[in-house]
């Protein structure tokens, strides 16, 4: 894919990524967010943050499985959209849900593991978002890669946050958990493959 085509794809992804937000505005203006609109917005933005996180994490498995590399260029933008929806999610929680009642918020975050886990995941996305620009990539060099491996921790925390949120029916969060396990599993499989190939190669070299 050439530069021009990549640009078109980027614009398309950018527009598509804003559709979930546009939908919320549309429903909101038409008074169509249901009996508990705050909960609706909270769940919607949270779900989309998680979806973008999983899409971001699927760029490398696509490369491993198909050999295609162009999609890696979308990764930063997708990751930032994850951060964008996570910010909306937390804003909804602090503002619309808890109306800036800081004492209530403090209790909620510290006493409820599901909130604590989600909050930790959000905090960890901040350094990644801040260092997502080219300047920071150059400046941090090899440390950048190490830092951005935090995304795996964030993904696990986010899925656990969702699993803990449901009262009884785990069906929906389990879909996300399975998706994450698959995405991480593919990576581990290829890593293991490469590792054993390297060992075989080394052994062969020793024999000759």
């Amino acid at each position: 894919m050439n530069k021009q085509q990549i640009l078109y794809v980027k614009v398309a992804v950018w527009v598509l990524a804003l559709l979930p937000l546009a939908r919320l505005f549309w429903l909101g203006f038409n008074d169509n967010l249901g009996a508990n609109p705050v909960e609706f917005v909270e769940h919607s933005t949270g779900t989309w943050a998680l979806v973008f996180l999983l899409i971001t994490l699927s760029m490398t498995p696509i490369r491993l499985l198909t050999g295609q590399v162009w999609q890696i260029q979308l990764r930063r933008m997708l990751g930032l959209f994850m951060f964008f929806y996570a910010c909306l999610h937390i804003t909804t929680y602090v503002w619309l849900d808890f109306a800036f009642l800081w004492d209530e918020l403090l209790i909620d975050v510290t006493k409820h593991p599901r909130i604590l886990v989600g909050f930790a995941a959000f905090l960890l996305t901040i350094p990644l978002a801040v260092t997502s620009n080219s300047y920071m990539i150059k400046r941090l060099k090899t440390n950048w890669k190490k830092l951005h491996q935090l995304v795996y921790v964030i993904a696990i925390l986010a899925v656990v946050h969702f699993l803990m949120l449901v009262k009884k029916d785990l069906t929906e969060p389990i879909y996300y958990a399975v998706a994450l396990i698959l995405l991480l599993g593919i990576r581990l499989y290829y890593k293991y493959q490469a590792h054993s190939k390297a060992i075989l190669k080394a052994k062969a070299m020793l024999k000759t």
Partner: peptide, 18 residues
């Protein structure tokens, strides 16, 4: 799971608070 010291009234809209 849920804070019990405050509650969200249904029907107050997006900005109705707790």
């Amino acid at each position: 799971r849920w804070t019990q010291s405050s509650e969200k009234p249904i029907g107050v809209g997006l900005f109705g608070g707790r």
